[in-house]
Structures are given as structure tokens and as C-alpha cells.
């Protein structure tokens, strides 16, 4: 039950892009083409899930036992940066084809606030290692859903006559706002499912 509720919350009702404003730079920057969006989604799902595991382990076995919670921000960003670097080296050696597909997106993820954000939210909600990982996966799936839908919409702009003042960022933000309005409708569904 907890699994279902965390998954539903992450993907629909508290979607990272539409409800929590996390990872917007990459969302707007990399959604111009469908393939790019898919590639980035793969990289984000992979990194965010395991980065939340690593961060939660770090929290449980290093920060809390030694009373270092006040260093959390520094510790997490270092852990995430090191983890991304490690994944990059590992993929290069063991799965070159996957590395080719995800390679250029990996360094970008270090500064994607969604990854650090999910680790912080896990601490705030007291999720621990297991549920923290599930929450990371759910958040990443929701982020990917958002960017893939949005890339689909953006590809159609090429055939449309858009007023000059709205071209680029303004229209991107307004259409994200409309999609976010649609996602706001899911909040009712979630309450019905739980009760």
C-alpha cells in the first residue's frame, strides 16, 4: 500500500516538475527534441533512484551516528557528484552502448536540483533507505513522464505560427503552466484511492 501511494504521489499528484518545481532547468533546456528527452529521462531515472539509495545509506550510517546532520548539504552534494562520476566510469567500461546513449547527460545531472531535492525530501519525510529509493524512482518516473509529454508538444511548435514575443521560453512556461493545471486534477483521484 505504501509502495502504491509513494509511486502515485511521485508520478502524478506531487509530480516534480508540475507540483514541486524541481529540475526545471533541464526540463526546459532538453525538451526541444523527443530523442534528447528520452535520453535524459533514462539517465535521470538511473541516477536519481540510486543516488537516493546512496544518500540514505550515507545518512543512516555516517551522518546520524556521528551527529553530523548539519553538514548534510555539503555531504549530499559531494556524494551525488562522486556517485555520478562513478556511474560514468562504470558504464564506460561495462556497457559502452548505454554509455554512448546516456554519456553526455550524466555530468548535467550533478547540478540537477531534482536529484539533491529528492534526497532532501527523503530526510524530511523520514523515509529511510528502502522507501527513499522507491521515492527516488517515483520522482524520476514523474519527471520523465513530464519531459516526454512536453517534448511531444514542443515538436509540434515547428509547424505553428507563434507570435514573436512568445517564442522560446515564454511559451514553454505558459504551456508548462497549462499542463500543470491538468495535473492539479489528479490530486482528487489520489484522495479517493487512499480512502
Amino acid at each position: 500500500m505504501k509502495f502504491i501511494s509513494i509511486m502515485l504521489a511521485g508520478v502524478l499528484t506531487s509530480n516534480f516538475i508540475f507540483m514541486q518545481y524541481l529540475g526545471l532547468c533541464a526540463f526546459v533546456g532538453l525538451s526541444e527534441q523527443f530523442e534528447t528527452a528520452i535520453g535524459m529521462s533514462g539517465a535521470v531515472i538511473f541516477v536519481m533512484t540510486f543516488a537516493s539509495t546512496v544518500a540514505a545509506l550515507f545518512e543512516q550510517f555516517i551522518l546520524v551516528p556521528f551527529g553530523l546532520e548539519y553538514l548534510r548539504t555539503i555531504a549530499y552534494i559531494l556524494v551525488i557528484a562522486a556517485f555520478v562520476q562513478l556511474v560514468e566510469i562504470f558504464l564506460k567500461k561495462t556497457a559502452p552502448s548505454l554509455y554512448k546513449a546516456l554519456g553526455i547527460y550524466l555530468p548535467l545531472i550533478t547540478t540537477n536540483c531534482a536529484v539533491l531535492g529528492v534526497a532532501m525530501l527523503n530526510v524530511k519525510n523520514d523515509y529511510g533507505v528502502l522507501w527513499g529509493t522507491v521515492n527516488g524512482l517515483a520522482g524520476a518516473l514523474g519527471w520523465s513522464l513530464a519531459i516526454v509529454i512536453f517534448a511531444g508538444i514542443r515538436e509540434r511548435w515547428k509547424f505553428m505560427n507563434i507570435p514573436a514575443a512568445l517564442k522560446g521560453f515564454p511559451l514553454a512556461l505558459i504551456s508548462t503552466g497549462l499542463m500543470s493545471l491538468a495535473f492539479l486534477g489528479f490530486s482528487g483521484l489520489f484522495k479517493t484511492v487512499l480512502n
Binding site: 518545481y21 514575443a165 515564454p170 511559451l171 512556461l173 505558459i174 493545471l181 492539479l184
Partner: peptide, 25 residues
């Protein structure tokens, strides 16, 4: 009240940017 929810934020910033673009042009 919708202006305080996430959709309101996106739309506000989008429209502000568009207005600024018109002024610059």
C-alpha cells in the same frame, strides 16, 4: 487562488517574459 498554485507561477513568469520581449522589440 490559482495564482498561488504551481500553474499560476508558470503562467505569470511566461507572460512577464513575453511582455518584456515586446518592450525590448
Amino acid at each position: 487562488a490559482v495564482m498561488l498554485t504551481p500553474p499560476g507561477g508558470f503562467v505569470t513568469l511566461g507572460i512577464l517574459m513575453a511582455v518584456l520581449n515586446i518592450l525590448v522589440q
